[in-house]
Design a protein around this nucleic acid. Sequence first.
DNA 1: CCAAAAATTGTGGATATCCACAATCCGGCC
DNA 2: GGCCGGATTGTGGATATCCACAATTTTTGG
Lengths: 202, 202
Amino acid sequence: MTPTVFLVDDDDAIRDALSWLLQSRDLNCRSFASAEAFLAQWNSELAGCLLLDIRMGGMSGLELFDRLLELGNRLPVIFLTGHGDVPMAVSSLKKGAFDFVEKPFDDNELVNRVLEAIALDSRRQAAAASSGSLKGRLESLTSRERQVMALILAGKFNKIIADELNISMRTVEVHRAKLFEKMGVRTAVELSQLMSGQPPGP
Amino acid sequence: MTPTVFLVDDDDAIRDALSWLLQSRDLNCRSFASAEAFLAQWNSELAGCLLLDIRMGGMSGLELFDRLLELGNRLPVIFLTGHGDVPMAVSSLKKGAFDFVEKPFDDNELVNRVLEAIALDSRRQAAAASSGSLKGRLESLTSRERQVMALILAGKFNKIIADELNISMRTVEVHRAKLFEKMGVRTAVELSQLMSGQPPGP
DNA sequence: CCAAAAATTGTGGATATCCACAATCCGGCC
DNA sequence: GGCCGGATTGTGGATATCCACAATTTTTGG
């Protein structure tokens, strides 16, 4: 999905100016006049980032943020704020907000932060895709294969694994081969690297 | 070293009250009336956390924070602030500050954050000690051993490694054995786990 | 130049891993 | 009951890893 800047602000003038700015920088932009309007369109597959005004009529920016967290939102959130409130800023950052920008803001500064937020979203997307693929493979393993895998990853020899599980070495070999096939690896080191998220190397 | 709360505030009343509070909770506390006084005592081995007032005569809390970062400070820093300033809070958090507490604060709330900061410092200490030990071992490796290690971690067989390095398989075995000895592992999987920071397993 | 470290290689033998081919048993499902 | 997937095991043979014992060559530092 093409990254989009989702802009939520009940001030028409701000919304129009920001839309214009973002589009002049070749960024996709969709704007919403209320938190409720955005929430009605929200889904977990959105890509890009969210520019969110804190103070609005109806549902506030902070309330929307909390609701999105509950729903499992993954868009980076940049808050637009006109009045400082340190505990709220600290608290939101700790909850995972990406940034705070105070009005009035510098155009270039804002666009840079938006670009950074979009780049972060892309990186998270790629990591999630990779993780999902790994997850599917792990789910395909039988109970016995999982046991054998844990012991392999502990660096144990087949003979030791056989002793610990009270089975023959031949059986360990069978599970091991099946496990490697399902995980798409050829050696125990590849499996270890795969499980720890490291690149396979040269 | 015993964890200590380092308190830096030019307001005598605040400093005395905080000292009393922290000591009533069995926390070691050392207070300083100025940023300069703390800086003169600072060293990189301090353990605990730093409670730092933002606004002070002479060097400000923020200036001290930046200076400490330059010096490689590792103490978690909790800022005490009497007046909100969101961009400054956001910026400091992104630079690695641990938290912000606005005056007047709740005693229990403050102590909890101090305890959390001290616990974080302890965890970081343990991780640094472990990392240093690994670093020393890595530094003991010869150039050839390093090359062989990279190829082992890539999951390659000795025969392939020999081909790539234009040496005999016997030589690969020698380097491999020496490498495992220096790194304190018995198998390639153990080495892989060690290098990726994973626990060795059951 | 000399000593030590690093790199390299070989032989023979042992252990570890891998697998084609084959087979049996058990539990769950239709 | 029959079928299927999972678990288990064996045989024989091949490849991979490990290393004691031994030796030579190259590089580095004093």
